[in-house]
């Protein structure tokens, strides 16, 4: 096996080896039976043959049907209980934004640091990855952490990990994405917290993502309508993130990254009740990277006041 470098890895391996053990037992059982029968009942051997009573055939049949069924259900339960407990993303996780494109990974820290094909993270801190793609489907795969998540265009997908061992681990694109799919690789550099803090300071700071987002918010003209002194009837975005809003077509939507992203690219789609769809689409104007910054900025706006 690969090195186990995340909190998840030992649990996955536990399940893996349990299944390997079970498979070995079944392969040995079937193999020994086939081989044993093949030798004992080869043509011309002296072994006894004859009809089996009907009830034996039926009981054996029912017996192994029930047995396999219970084994299958047991493994399902074993795996499913792990799925529910391990794939919940912790609240206090450090956020990394990932934008995939043919054929590179762009990774951005909350403090505004950008990396390409490399990600530096501290040991022992849960890391939440919010990912999107600019073109085809990609997949963020770190074998040492036992995580993999497809990265889709037009929406955000998430995964998380908590590294347990310093070192450099492979990052692969696992969903075939064209010519240089096999070059779309990188490394996750896991550092002790102190070293990470030094690395974090050492990199040139361009201001946090949110600060860059605030600049974009003015540059792209968002503040013209959504700002304080706007004349157009557009909703204030302060304190919006995390709330539930009624929709014009009926129903509610949770305001999350996905919704904000869609509202920038396809503003006609889900309008908050009481507003008219007057906003133009920013598709092709704001890049995925810009949208990530704007969303980071919107998340910092508190209700009632502005930064």
């Amino acid at each position: 096996m690969m090195p186990e470098a995340s909190t998840l890895a030992p649990r996955i391996d536990h399940l893996f080896f349990a299944l390997v053990g079970l498979s070995l037992v079944i392969v040995l059982l079937v193999g020994c039976l086939v081989a044993g029968f093949a030798v004992r009942y080869r043509r011309g051997s002296k072994a006894q043959r004859g009809q089996l009573p009907k009830w034996i055939t039926r009981d054996v049949e029912l017996g192994w049907t029930a047995a396999t069924f219970f084994v299958a259900i047991f493994i399902f339960w074993f795996a499913a209980s792990m799925q529910t407990s391990e794939f919940e993303i912790p609240n206090n996780a450090m956020e990394i934004h990932v934008v995939a494109k043919q054929w590179m990974w762009k990774l951005e820290h909350a403090d505004g640091q950008r990396e390409i094909n490399t990600l530096h993270v501290p040991v022992g801190v849960p890391v939440r990855l919010v990912m999107t793609s600019q073109d085809a489907i990609h997949s963020f795969f770190v074998p040492a952490f036992r995580i993999k998540q497809d990265v889709l265009p037009g929406r955000y997908t998430e995964t998380w990990f908590q590294a347990t061992k310093p070192g450099t681990y492979h990052l692969f694109c696992a969903e075939y994405c064209g010519t240089d799919h096999s070059q779309m690789t990188g490394g996750i550099v896991v550092m002790p917290p102190a070293a990470f803090a030094r690395w974090s300071e050492g990199a040139a700071a361009q201001g946090t993502l949110a600060a860059q987002g605030a600049v974009l918010f003015r540059q792209l003209g968002c503040s013209g309508c959504h700002g304080k002194s706007a004349r157009v009837r557009a909703p204030s975005l302060a304190g919006l993130y995390g709330t539930r809003q009624p929709m014009a077509g009926g129903g509610f939507r949770q305001v999350d990254e996905e919704y904000l992203h869609d509202s920038i690219e396809q503003p006609q789609k889900d309008i908050v009740a009481g507003y008219t769809p007057v906003m133009p689409s920013y598709q092709g104007i704001a890049s995925e990277g810009d949208i990530i910054r704007i969303i980071a900025y919107l998340k910092t706006l508190k209700a009632g006041g502005r930064q």
Binding site: M247, G249, K269, D270, I271
Partner: peptide, 10 residues
Amino acid sequence: AYARWHGGEA
């Protein structure tokens, strides 16, 4: 069905 469900008013 998918497009109408997600597309809404537009």
